[in-house]
């Protein structure tokens, strides 16, 4: 990847706009924030990997639009959130490929873990106007699986340690992360 960007937000309401002209990874971490993101993939053959990981205590939303503005462009979105309290969390995740742009790949994977009885919604949206496009989406809202907790506890981990490992795995979901850039976010995970 040519570019790797780290973005960290805390208790804020922000809009972001990116014009992507070369292969890019964006790691976006937010704590209790409402975020809107608009991305244009400009150049032919360019790849975008976008990781959004967020921890929420109050009502928040995340909205993203990815416009494929050239052929053979590729977007992969990984949107992971944890709803800690009884708050509301909403995702609107949109991938757009116009009819002039073929051979694109436009994928998104969305998950929200409700730790308590929070209300969460995910709207995965794919507006694909070209037949020669690979596009997939997935959405999951729920709790951590009891079967996973059983497995971990059967090896001696306490429930608390099991949750901590699961939360770290869920919210720091890329092998190539530079931990020094997200110290505050990592600390926040350990507070949950």
């Amino acid at each position: 990847m040519n570019k790797i960007l780290y973005v960290v937000d805390s208790n804020s309401k922000k809009d972001y706009h990116y014009d992507i002209t070369s292969d890019t990874i964006i790691y976006h971490f937010s704590i209790n924030s409402t975020i809107k993101v608009d991305i244009n993939i400009i150049n032919e053959g360019v790849q975008l990997y976008y990781y959004y990981n967020n921890i929420n205590y109050d009502d928040n939303s995340f909205s993203i639009q990815v416009h494929h503005l050239n052929q053979s462009t590729h977007s992969e979105l990984f949107i992971h959130g944890v709803n800690v309290l009884k708050n509301r969390l909403h995702y609107n995740v949109e991938g757009i490929v116009d009819k002039d742009f073929s051979n694109c790949i436009c994928n998104q994977e969305n998950q929200i873990i409700n730790l308590k009885s929070g209300k969460s919604t995910i709207c995965p949206i794919l507006k694909i106007d070209n037949y020669n496009v690979d596009s997939n989406h997935s959405a999951y809202i729920g709790r951590f699986s009891e079967e996973k907790l059983f497995y971990m506890m059967s090896r001696g981990l306490t429930r608390k340690d099991s949750y901590r490992l699961l939360l770290n795995g869920f919210l720091l979901n890329s092998d190539s992360l530079d931990a020094s850039k997200i110290v505050d976010f990592t600390k926040e995970i350990n507070k949950i």
Binding site: Y151, M153, S154, G156, R159, L165, L166, G169, N173
Partner: peptide, 28 residues
């Protein structure tokens, strides 16, 4: 609880061990 049974020395080698994404073997 399950973890305390493990600490008592029990170990269940599971028929179909579950996969856990994001948690490395070594860390676990």
């Amino acid at each position: 609880d399950v973890d305390l049974r493990a600490k008592k020395g029990l170990f269940l080698c599971m028929q179909d061990p579950i996969s856990i994404d994001g948690v490395s073997n070594s860390e676990f």
